[in-house]
Nucleic acid binder design. Structure first.
Lengths: 357, 357
DNA sequence: TTGTAGGCGTTATCAT
DNA sequence: ATGATAACGCCTACAA
């Protein structure tokens, strides 16, 4: 059955006024008779009248809402970014509309389709791993829809971008692995063409190079869904375990890869870190409570959301077209824990493991 | 700067046609000359014309979108529910708009405000712990906005509800604790007035009763934010530890309470399960990888999302007002792991712990 | 086969 | 101080 909220027209009819008078009264216009105003306001309150945001959007050509597209909200990194986004949006009176692509370019496409055409005033997006065809985004951007990329950016679309310095972060983490005695370090990477994959891979390679360690092609495994499916991680790790010499550590280059790598290693009863060191990107709150506590790269996700949103609002609210775009690179931190500590201890202590850095 | 998508008017002007002809051509009406139709379609394609969903909504008085309000997306239970919701919505061509209340009735209110007034066709909501004033929801419901409650329901609003049988689940979990040798079982509960809190508490009490165990008021601790803030959990647990006799197990009655309880116990260096057993609700994928692996009640979250959405669409698409409402109660499963096993073992095995039922 | 007009809810502009 | 009208983008009943 149809739901129908009260409108200005209803009020006007009931009070025997014109819609314009009602409208002005509701907006507290100075040119309305105080008595009329009072009448209207009271009646509106009784009806719990709310202006219809759809009609407003149609008229004002804006919706005071921002679209966000991420692959999954069930991912600590993204949910923290979203909290950052909402914190700014909330301050500025914008509603945030979240859509998931679930790493499918088809779903991403549908979400874009829906959010575009002015149903949102701007867009924050981290690309799905599957996305190779940027034509739709490119077109929306060309039509003037303000877009800010974060995390997984489209390098050649000229707009603001917010990323984490994946090169530095990976470099630091892999250096840590090496100085802790690991020598044959494999990397589990996201889809190959993603900007973040390239960066993180480069940081990994640089660290090996810095220490004069060999770099082997077969130590690099790509997971095209970024570890969203357990199976792709298991396959990758099983194949790494076949290698001779066998890698002695795994560096996982994104959130789900890291936790799923732990799951696989536990399932295969591989002792961490004795038989295999493990470190990787993760923003999960639980990594220090895992067995073993995981050495992770933690990205400033909340901050990233805030900055991206500030840049987006700047784009939206600017009077003139903006031609100069920034690419902000944030620094991640490495939290060192037991999963990369080769010191011989039968058991890691039962209390909360110290996290350095 | 302003973004402006092409409209029917643009096409009409360019092709020297009326807007109605263009409109009909686009909708492939039989009464349009094939030649004209072709012309219009081609031009529209070139412009990447998309009908303005706002204008459509205004006209059709529906938006093909569903609103979802949860306290937090960064909560495995809710993110799984959302995936269930989206799976159905996607099939039926509805967009899902997610908003977070972050356990604040003020934010919940704003989200409701925004989503209502016909910007969504229906609403799926799990109440924030803070919400005591239901007047706004009640009014929207009275005005005819289709609403389905899930998880945290408003008992006295007559509409469909989907919940988990918290009584059974708690009862089963606490029975498990008792048969495993725990005797002084404390409970960490969500805000006291929530329906789910009452149910879960009742299941806990029944289990104690069944075994003739004492039930003590001081073994019940409420956390008004459902464990969203670490501090409230720490305070609660510290106070439990003061008690004499001290509880020998903690049963945590919701997601964040469970993982934060683990965090607190680890910080305080309390050995689990030797010094304190721990079990609780959690839908996190990581609980079996924690140290120790956690005994949890896992709710059928995805299923819950699917069912709630089916019921909502039924409400939305029904021609006549619906007077009969269902309350679906789903069963949760208990996954038994090391955190409640008092068998003396120096160390739980390093492989993946077996999980039964 | 195509065009005109009216309406969805709102507000700005121009009367009165 | 209040009202009539037009416009935002779309669709459709009715007219031509």
């Amino acid at each position: 059955m149809k739901y129908s909220a009260p409108t200005i027209k209803d009020i006007a009819r009931a009070l025997n006024l014109s819609t314009s008078t009602v409208s002005r009264a509701l907006r507290d216009s100075y040119e309305i008779n105080p008595a009329t105003k009072k009448l209207v306001l009271e009646y509106a309150a009784r009806l719990n009248y709310q202006p219809n945001p759809i009609a407003l959007s149609l008229r004002e050509r804006r919706s005071l809402s921002l679209g966000v597209i991420v692959c999954e909200v069930a991912n600590s990194f993204f949910s923290q970014v979203i909290n950052g986004i909402e914190s700014i949006a909330y301050e500025k009176g914008y509603q945030v509309i979240i859509s998931q692509s679930r790493e499918s370019s088809e779903k991403e496409w549908r979400a874009l389709q829906y959010l575009a055409s002015r149903s949102v005033d701007g867009l924050l997006i981290s690309l799905s791993t599957e996305t190779t065809d940027l034509s739709m985004i490119r077109q929306l951007h060309a039509q003037g829809l303000p877009i800010v990329f974060f995390d997984r950016v489209a390098e050649d679309i000229p707009t603001h971008k917010v990323t984490v310095d994946g090169f530095q972060a990976s470099h630091k983490a892999v250096m840590h692995l090496i100085t802790n005695g690991f020598r044959r370090i494999a990397i589990l990477a996201n889809a190959a063409f993603l900007s973040i994959t390239k960066e993180r891979l480069a940081g990994y390679e640089k660290a090996l190079l810095d220490h004069g360690l060999p770099m082997r092609r077969e130590w690099i495994r790509y997971c095209d869904h970024g570890g969203m499916y357990y199976d792709e991680v298991e396959t990758a790790i099983r194949s790494l375990l076949q290698l001779r010499p066998r890698p002695d550590a795994i560096f996982a280059a994104s959130d789900k890869l890291t936790t799923n790598a732990l799951r696989v290693l536990r399932l295969l009863q591989i002792r961490i870190p004795q038989q295999m060191g493990l470190a990787g990107f993760s923003n999960s709150e639980l990594t220090e409570l895992l067995d073993p506590p995981l050495t992770v790269i933690k990205q400033p996700a909340f901050e990233m959301g805030r900055i991206a949103t500030e840049l987006l609002l700047q784009l939206i609210e600017s009077k003139r077209p903006i031609k100069e775009f920034e690419t902000r690179k944030l620094q991640a931190e490495v939290l060192v824990r037991a999963s990369t500590s080769l010191l011989k201890k039968k058991e890691h202590p039962r209390g909360l493991p110290t996290t350095s850095q």
